[in-house]
Amino acid sequence: MTAEKPEENQAAKTPSDQPDETARREFIAKAVSVFAGGAIVSVPIGVGVATLLGPAFKEGQGGIKIRLAALEDLPGDGSPKLYQVVAERKDAWTKYPQKPIGSVFLQKLEDGGVIAFNSSCPHAGCSVGFKSKEVGYYCPCHESIFLLDGSRGDPCVSPRGLDSLEVDKERLNGGEVWVTFQNFAAGIEEKKAI
């Protein structure tokens, strides 16, 4: 095997008639061995690590605008309703024409507007459920409560409230609920798209 050898072994001595010349030759031999061995072993490892780290440098697929419901289908009493988001998505090599990619709570407001929340918990990414109009949203993983407007309730270990999603106002006036679906980084205070 030609893997790199520990440095301390370079101090090993071999008997010789010409100590200086032999020592010099031996040092060069050791240096070249270590260097060449290290270089060639680093080729497969380096290439492998490069492929492994590749995803870190890839951009996310960004937000996607999608129709979720007709305005009249939302509960009139203002309680939220969960909608599945199904869209075209690329997963490595596969292009799925219809792939479930997440879910969104839609809530009709008194002024006729609609607010939308990504159902993924901003704390650690669990799936948030709706409990009741009085309690609000509840994440079962770490027992966090979010109020109806998405803000942090009590108790709540999440660093921020639920992530609201953009609702297309123009289309809403036409009676259709279109939302820009997006995921956000969990566990931080800032709402950062991924």
């Binding site: 030609t2 050898k5 072994n9 090993a12 071999t14 031996e26 031999a29 050791k30 070249v32 061995s33 060449a36 061995g37 270089a39 060639i40």
Partner: peptide, 15 residues
């Protein structure tokens, strides 16, 4: 000795 005499040759051959 195996180290470094033979290993040097081995390393060059592997390169």
């Amino acid at each position: 000795m195996f180290w470094p005499d033979q290993i040097l040759k081995d390393a060059i051959a592997c390169a």
